[in-house]
Amino acid sequence: MSSAISTAPQSGAPLIYHLRDVVKTREAKDAAFTLRIPSLQIAMGEKIALIGESGSGKSTLLDMLAFILQPSEIGAFSFRPERDEQPLNIQAYWKKGKINELGDLRKRYIGYVMQNGGLLPYLTVRDNMNLCRSVLGLRPDGMVEHLADELGITAHLNKLPDALSTGERQRVAIGRAVAHRPSIVIADEPTASLDPYAAEKVMSMFIGLAEEFDITVILASHAWDHIKQLGLRRLTHRTIRNHNKMFTETVVTG
């Protein structure tokens, strides 16, 4: 069992996510896992950290927030990507099987940084960074070059991901997630495969960019040390495992 510090969402700012009684259950032959979210509120512009060991359900929560994993049960799940828009009922989208419409929301409002970058090996760094922008039909406006400069990867813009180090690939992934100016960036252990020095550097670049573009951030990490000085609000979670590890339940609130 583990526990963590929690702080309330910033008062005054509208909520980008509001979840109540959301559950995801996964069952395998010799193990079962349940993620329970009694209540979760994330305000626009917040920087949220979800800290926990492997297998505690961090990725499951992030995937549900990115609409790429359907919850097993939903009490309420609303998403308000812009201040001047009404909250969207994500529960209804899932219920009606509107996978493509959820994809459209993700395309427009969400950036996602994967643990291993998730770069397309056949695209250059520039094209990878421009991928979300080009899917949205955004014209080149120097954003990719600006981000490459901020992330220190300008020299690699015309290279393929294979030619880059792990840290450089993660920086490209961050650039891709931010380049289309989404409302929120979800990052799943973006620095897990980096050494502590590189991890700290990449993480501060990431948060710096998010602040520059006023993007809400939710990131999962198993190491609080790298990010505690960045001023993120840490979500509370409690993980219970039975004695033979046949059953795991994580409860997240915040």
């Binding site: 493509n100 993700r106 090996p121």
Partner: peptide
């Protein structure tokens, strides 16, 4: 996996 990335960035079915 690569198709999943395309899905993630918003390509439709």
């Amino acid at each position: 996996k690569e198709l999943s990335v395309l899905r993630l960035v918003g390509f439709r079915t």
